[in-house]
């Protein structure tokens, strides 16, 4: 008897849930006709709080939203930690069919999904990165970051600030912008003083903070007095630098000054706001994509955020400014 009762209860719960679902769906999705907000959805491989790649896109969207006048003007929806591609594909298709104006697939692994789905929604703008391939579709943007450029600038400063002539790099896996940033960094150091040793460690993981911390401590024990690195796990390296007290840090992807205000010299910051604003403007003019967008120093997509809390010597700052100007003008080319 009790079993039957449980059965009935569970059945009722399921039916209630389904019924409510139906009710929810019949309710109008959009608001009034007076001012429909522009709608952007973003699908990200890690969390919005990763202090790195996903957070850079998330804060850019929030900044654009604030500039445009809040949620009434720009509606943003997100799906995070979508490291499983089929889930991401479902999310991308779902947002597109909900009528979002722009759907951003913020991961290089989402390319194939974007290519397939974009064909089914010709009136929606899709953007994906980091990559350079728009598949020849008129409604797809591809975007990437020339991380090597900011890496070069950081490298120039690092070379001028090291006293031990030993610089440590704590990286995750030698791929993507973790690799290109460090390639640029090494070139920047070599441009100032080729006798400086840059030693690199890779932890084989984007998330292993404990090993990343110990890698940084190993560099410090070996005599390094300047460190850099990328991925969400470098927060551990910054902690190690802070514990040592006299080791400097250069950041990338996000402004990391808040983690060690006395020791972070500068961070290369990915600023996607210009890209987002351009896509919105283009959309309103009827142009939906077909463009590859590269974050560079030249187009202010990459910025060097000097930490105001760190007393950077004038000559170092001048050298950094010069490197930025030279890269912008093309006098220096940095190869990834």
């Amino acid at each position: 008897m009790r079993i039957r009762a449980l059965f009935i209860v569970s059945l009722i719960v399921v039916m209630l849930a389904t019924a409510c679902g139906g009710g929810q769906q019949t309710a109008p999705a959009g608001g009034g006709e007076a001012a429909k907000p522009f709608r952007i959805a973003v699908v990200m491989p890690s969390a919005t709080t990763d202090m790195a790649f996903s957070q850079s896109m998330w804060s850019a969207l929030k900044a654009v939203q604030a500039e445009m006048g809040g949620e009434a003007a720009l509606e943003i929806k997100y799906s995070e930690n979508m490291f499983k591609v089929p889930d991401a594909a479902a999310a991308i298709r779902d947002y597109a069919s909900q009528g979002f104006n722009i759907v951003i697939a913020h991961g290089s692994q989402y390319g194939a999904s974007v290519e397939e789905i974009a064909k089914d929604f010709p009136n929606t703008t899709f953007a994906w990165g980091t990559d350079v391939n728009t598949f020849g579709l008129p409604n797809v943007y591809a975007y990437t970051a020339a991380a090597e450029q900011g890496g070069y600038v950081n490298g120039v400063m690092a070379a001028m600030l090291t006293k031990s002539k030993l610089i440590g790099v704590t990286g995750p896996i030698e791929v993507g912008d973790a690799k290109t940033y460090i390639d640029g960094f090494v070139q920047g150091v070599a441009a100032v003083d080729p006798s400086i040793t840059v030693s690199k460690t890779w932890t084989g993981s984007f998330s292993d903070v404990a090993l990343m911390t110990e890698a940084a401590k190993t560099h410090i024990a070996a005599g390094a007095d300047v460190l850099t690195g990328s991925s969400q796990s470098v927060v551990g390296s910054i902690g190690a630098a802070k514990e040592a007290g006299n080791v400097l840090w250069f950041g990338t992807q996000q402004d990391q000054a808040s983690l060690a205000p006395e020791l972070v010299v500068a961070s290369q910051v990915y600023d996607w706001t210009a890209l987002i604003k351009q896509m919105i403007a283009n959309y309103k003019e009827g142009k939906l994509g077909g463009i590859t967008y590269v974050l560079e120093l030249k187009n202010d997509g990459l910025k060097i955020a000097f930490n105001p809390g760190f007393a950077l010597p004038d000559n170092v700052k001048a050298a950094a400014e010069k490197a930025i100007a030279d890269i912008k003008s093309g006098a220096i080319t940095v190869n990834p």
């Binding site: 202090m51 292993d208 404990a210 911390t213 796990s233 902690g239 514990e243």
Partner: peptide, 11 residues
């Protein structure tokens, strides 16, 4: 050891 917390810190 690392003096911070992050999602999936233990990896």
């Amino acid at each position: 050891l690392v003096n911070l917390f992050q999602e999936n810190l233990t990896a």
